[in-house]
Design a protein around this nucleic acid. Structure first.
Lengths: 203, 203, 203, 203
DNA sequence: CATGAATGAGCATTCATTCAT
DNA sequence: TATGAATGAATGCTCATTCAT
C-alpha cells in the first residue's frame, strides 16, 4: 500500500487501482500521454506492463478515468461557487482562487487537461471533456455577465473574449507554477486578480 | 542540397525543402509532433517516407528547423520593437500587436512553439528554444520595467508574474484563434489591451 | 452453482467439474480451441479464470478430457455394434445411424474431434486420438470387408478410399446439422444410406 | 527471388508479394491461421516480421487475399463447366474432377477454405466467402437438378442433402490427400464417382 | 472453492531510419 | 530526387498460469 518512491501522495482512494492511476497521471502529465508507455507506468509501479491490464482495459482507459474524475470534481466545485450568495465579484474571486488552488493540489490532472484535451476531443469516449468544458464556460460567463449587470464589471468588452483571456491565463499557469515552491497559489491568485481588476496602468 | 538562406519554410519559399517543411509544420501543429509520422508528412507531400531523408536528416531535424526559424524571426521582430523610440506603453502595444499578428500569420509555428517546446526543452539540440525564450522574456520585462519607471505602469505587482500572465494569455490564443474567422487579430489585440490596461472593473 | 445461461444441459456427471467441461466443450467447439480463452470459459461459468485451475491443470487438460471421454464412448459404441449378430449391411446401417445420432447428441464433442484432432495429433498427450481413430477405422473396415465377402457390397472399389469417403461425409455433417432443427438425424442417416447403397443414378 | 526451401512452387505472380502470400498460405493451412504468427511467416521468408507490413496491411489481410483469389478462381472454373454443352452427368463429372484437381494443385488454399471459412464467416471483410460459397452451391444444385429432370439422376433423394454429402466428401479429402503421393487425384475422382453413381451395393 | 494480483512470454503492429537501385 | 524493400526497436495488449489469502 505504501508507494515505493518518495513522490508526494497523489489523490486516490487508497486502492491499488487509485495508486496506479496516480502514477499514470503523473507520467502522462510530465511526458505527455502518447510519450508515456504502458511499460513506463508499470515500471514506476513496480509491476510488469501486462499486469496493468488486470486493473484497466487500456491505456486510454486510464487517461479517461483520470480526466473524468478531475472534470467532474472541477465542475462540482465551480457549480457550488456559482450557486452561493454574494456579489458577482465575490463569486468571481472564488472561481479564480479555486482554480489556482486546484492547480496547486492536482497539478498532474490540470496539466493533462491542458495538454491532452485537444488531442482527445475528437474521440467519442472522451466527449465528456468537451461537454464539461462547455458547462464550466457557461458558469463563468454567467458570473461575468451578472457582474456587468450589477455594474461591478465593465460592459465595453466582449465577455466571451474576456472569458478566454482569463481561462487561458489561469490554467496556463500550471506550466510554470511549482506546488512545492515558495510562491503560494493564493498569492498568485491575488496578484492576478489585482492586475485583472485594476488594470496595468498606474493612477 | 539547396542553400538555406533567406527562405521562409512555412510559407513555401519555392524550394522543395521549404514546401516539405511547411507540410510538416502544419501536421506537427495539428496532430502533435509525436503523433505525426514521417509517413504522414510524406503522404501529404506525395512521396514515400524514405524519400524525406533526402532532404532532412531526421524527423527531429524538421521540427528543429521549423522552431529555429520561427524563434529567430520572433526575437528579431521583438528586438526591433524594443529598440524603437516612443513610450514604454507604445512599445508594449507594439509587442502585443505583433504577437497576435504572428499568431495570425504563422499559426502552425506558434502552435508548435506552444505545444512542443516543453517536451523538447531538455534535448541538447533544442537549447536554442530556452535561450531565445529567455531573451524574449528579458525584452518584454525591460519594456514593462521601463513603464514602471516612467510611471505609466503600476508598480505594486510582481513584474515577473505580470509577464507570465500576459505571455500565457497572448500565446494561448493560438488554440482558439481562427486566422480565417471574422474576428480579426488586431481586434483581439485591442480587446486584450483594453482589458489589461483598464482592468475589469467599471468606473 | 446454477449456470447463468439457459443453455441446454450438456453431458456431465452432475459435478462442478463436469459442468465446467461442458461449458468448455461448447466454447471450444463454437470458437475453436485456440480462439477460446480460459477467461471465456470462466466468464461463462461465473468465476474468475484463475479459479479454473482448481479443477484442471491446464486448458489443454480440459480439451484432452473432453476428447478422451468422447472417443472412448464412441469406440465402445462402435465395438458393441461390430460384435453384434446380423449381416454386415445391418451392422453397417447401425454404424452410420449411431454416427449421426452421436452428432445429434454430442455436437460439441464431435465438432471438437473434427476441428482440433489434426492440430493436437502431434502432441504426445493426445496420442489416444490417433490410436482410437485407428481402432475405429479398423472396425469400420472390417464391416465393409465382411460385406464384400458376403457379396453384399461391391468389390471393385478401394475399401480404404470408400471408408474415407464415408467417414468424411458422416462427420462433416456436424458443420451443418442442427440438433434443434426440423431435419432429424435419423432422416439424414436414411437419406445418406439410400444414396450410398443405391447410387445417384436412376434405374 | 529464389525461395530458400525446396518447397513445391506455390502459385504467385512472381512478385515478392505473391511469394509471401504463398508462404503464408502454406503456414496458415498447416498450422491454422490463428496458430500461425507473423513471425513464422517472416522467418520462413527470411525477413523480419515488421517488414511484412511493407507488403500487407495486416495478417488478416493476407488471409483475405489468399481466400479471395482462391474462391474467385474456383467460382470461375465451376461457372465455365456449368455453362458447357453436354449432359448433366458429364457436367457433374467435370465438377467433381475439377474439385479433386484443385485439391491437388492448391492444397493450401483448399485447406484454408475448409478450416477457416467458418471462423471468418462472421467478419464483414470476409463476406465474399459466404457469398461465393452460395453461388457455387447454386451452380452444383442446378446441375444436380438438371440431371433429375433428364432422368439421369434419381429423384427420390433430397437434392440439398445430396449436395452437402458430396461437397463434404470432396473437400474433406484435402485432409488426407497427398499431392506428392502415388494415389493420383483423378483416380480418387474416378473412385468417388464410381461409388457415388453406382452405389455401394453389389449387383 | 474462489479471489485478486501478478507473471512472463508472446503477439500483431508501428515507425523512424537505411540503402541499393 | 525518388523508390521499394528492409531493419530493429518499441508499443499496446493478450493470455495461460501461479499463488497468497
Amino acid at each position: 500500500m505504501t508507494p515505493r518512491t518518495g513522490r508526494a501522495p497523489v489523490k486516490n482512494g487508497g486502492t491499488r487501482r487509485g495508486e496506479l492511476l496516480g502514477i499514470a497521471a503523473q507520467l502522462f502529465a510530465t511526458r505527455g500521454y502518447s510519450q508515456t508507455t504502458v511499460r513506463d507506468i508499470a515500471d514506476e509501479a513496480g509491476i510488469l506492463s501486462g499486469s496493468l491490464y488486470h486493473h484497466f482495459a487500456s491505456k486510454e482507459d486510464m487517461l479517461r478515468e483520470i480526466l473524468k474524475e478531475f472534470m467532474d470534481d472541477l465542475l462540482a466545485a465551480f457549480t457550488e461557487i456559482a450557486g452561493k450568495d454574494g456579489t458577482p465579484r465575490e463569486r468571481f474571486d472564488a472561481l479564480v482562487h479555486t482554480s489556482f488552488a486546484t492547480i496547486h493540489e492536482r497539478p498532474f490532472a490540470v496539466a493533462l487537461y491542458q495538454n491532452e484535451s485537444a488531442v482527445v476531443g475528437s474521440l467519442a469516449d472522451f466527449d465528456f471533456v468537451g461537454k464539461t468544458s462547455l458547462k464550466i464556460e457557461k458558469l463563468w460567463l454567467s458570473v461575468l455577465q451578472a457582474g456587468r449587470e450589477t455594474g461591478e464589471f465593465r460592459d465595453d468588452l466582449e465577455t466571451s473574449l474576456v472569458y478566454r483571456f482569463i481561462r487561458d491565463t489561469v490554467w496556463s499557469s500550471v506550466r510554470w507554477y511549482n506546488p512545492r515552491g515558495k510562491l503560494r497559489h493564493d498569492v498568485v491568485a491575488e496578484q492576478y486578480l489585482a492586475m485583472l481588476y485594476g488594470g496595468l496602468l498606474a493612477g
